[in-house]
Computed example of a mutant assay.
Amino acid sequence: MVVNAVGTSTQVQSAADTAASKTAMDYDTFLTLLVAQLKNQDPTEPMDSTEQIAQLATFSQVEQTIQTNKSLEKLLQSSNLSQAGAIIGRTLTSADGSASGVVTEVRVLADGLTAILANGAEVAVGAGVTVR
């Protein structure tokens, strides 16, 4: 039994890291601009505090959404690995019935699972596939 998750793990991790990196950079940029705005504002017409709080709250929501997406990506990866392990050794038939056989290996890819059958056929695991 072989579960190949190297490709997905790397792709999901790099996508999550890229999003986190962009968030950190954007957050730092936002804070830099906010500080510059506060330093350079007209003392006779200071920035509206309500607007400032709204800006901070909006940016905080975006940052939290990105963190939630990272957690969901990890959860989906874990789910894919569980599914992969569950179909090894079982008989799988493709949705169109053109390929059938015992699953000897499963590749976990960014777009889903691909089952490798004993006869060498590769079948994308998705809607319509039968597992017995």
Rank of each mutant, 00 (worst) to 15 (best):
M25F: 14
Q77L: 15
T10A: 13
V102M: 10
V62I: 11
T8M: 14
S21W: 06
Q67Y: 02
T58S: 14
V62L: 11
L72Q: 14
A99C: 06
T93P: 04
T50E: 15
S94V: 12
A16T: 08
L109T: 12
N119E: 11
S71A: 13
A110R: 01
G89T: 07
T65L: 07
K74M: 04
I66D: 01
T18S: 14
V102H: 00
M47S: 10
E63V: 09
Q61T: 12
G126A: 04
N4C: 00
Q37G: 15
D42R: 06
S71N: 07
E51W: 02
A19E: 05
V129S: 09
T114W: 03
N69D: 03
G112K: 09
D17Y: 04
V131R: 07
V125S: 10
A86N: 12
V106Q: 10
L33N: 14
M25H: 10
D17K: 04
K70T: 09
Q55S: 15
V129G: 09
V131M: 07
A110P: 03
Q13S: 15
A110L: 11
V12Q: 09
M47A: 13
V3H: 03
N4F: 00
A15H: 02
V12P: 02
L92D: 06
A99N: 12
N69K: 08
V108G: 04
P46K: 12
M25L: 12
V3E: 05
T10H: 06
T23H: 00
K74S: 11
T23I: 05
V12T: 14
L31Y: 06
V12Y: 05
V106A: 12
